[in-house]
Amino acid sequence: MRTIGTVLKVGVVAVALMGVTGCAAKYRTHGYLPPEEDLQQITPGVDSRATVEDVIGVPNATGVLDNSGYYYIESEVRSFAWQRPKVTDRHIVAITFDEAGVVDNIVTYGLEDGRVVPLTRRVTKTSDGDIGFVRKLFGNIGGINLGDVLGST
C-alpha cells in the first residue's frame, strides 16, 4: 500500500512541475545583427556594397525605393502562456550608400528609437456580401436557357 501512495505523490509532483514549466516565459531571437568587431572593419567613404556583403553578410532587408541601404535587424520576442507574443528588444544596423554604391553612414537603432507603425489589412468588399449561401447556390436556376445548354440557336 505504501508503494501506491509514493507513486501517487511522485505523479502529482511531476504533473505540478509540468504545469509550472509550461507557464514559463519563452524568449526567441529572430534575425541577424552583425558583431561590433565586423562593423568596425567597414569604413564609410571607402567600402562598397560588395565589401559590406563580404565582411558582414547579406542584409535582412534593403532600401525599397532606390536600394539606398542595407538593414540588419534582430528582435527578441517573449511568449508567455496564452498571451500574444511581444517584442521585448530590437536592434537595427542601417548602412546607407551614396549614388556610387559607397558606404555613406552606419547607424544603430534600438527599440526605444522607433515608433509603432500599425499595419492595416485592406480587404476589397464584394457586392454580394449580403446574399446568403442558399441564395447564391440557387440564384442562377432561373437564368439558364435550355437553348444555350443544347447548343441550338
Rank of each mutant, 00 (worst) to 15 (best):
M1F: 05
G5H: 07
T6I: 15
V10H: 00
V12E: 04
V13H: 00
V13M: 09
V13I: 15
A14R: 03
A16R: 03
L17Q: 00
M18S: 10
M18E: 04
T21F: 14
G22W: 13
A24K: 09
K26Y: 07
Y27R: 10
Y27C: 07
Y27K: 09
R28I: 11
T29C: 06
H30P: 01
Y32F: 15
Y32N: 08
L33P: 02
L33N: 05
E37Y: 02
D38Q: 14
D38Y: 03
Q40A: 15
Q41L: 12
Q41D: 05
Q41W: 04
V46M: 08
S48E: 14
T51N: 03
V52D: 00
V52L: 02
V55I: 15
I56C: 02
G57Q: 04
V58H: 13
P59E: 06
G63K: 08
V64Q: 12
D66C: 01
N67P: 01
S68V: 07
G69D: 06
Y72W: 06
I73V: 15
E74F: 11
E74P: 03
E76F: 00
E76D: 08
V77C: 07
S79G: 09
S79I: 02
W82K: 10
Q83L: 14
R84I: 11
K86M: 09
K86T: 12
V87C: 03
T88S: 07
T88H: 02
R90T: 12
H91K: 14
I92P: 01
F97H: 05
D98F: 01
I106N: 05
I106F: 01
T108C: 04
T108L: 04
Y109D: 12
G110N: 09
L111S: 08
L111F: 08
G114F: 03
G114E: 10
L119V: 14
T120Y: 13
R121Q: 09
R121I: 15
R122M: 06
V123N: 04
T124M: 05
K125I: 09
S127T: 12
S127N: 12
D128S: 07
G129Y: 03
G129V: 14
D130W: 11
D130H: 11
I131W: 04
I131A: 10
G132E: 09
R135C: 00
K136S: 04
G139H: 10
G142H: 11
G142M: 11
G143W: 04
I144L: 10
G147L: 02
G151L: 01
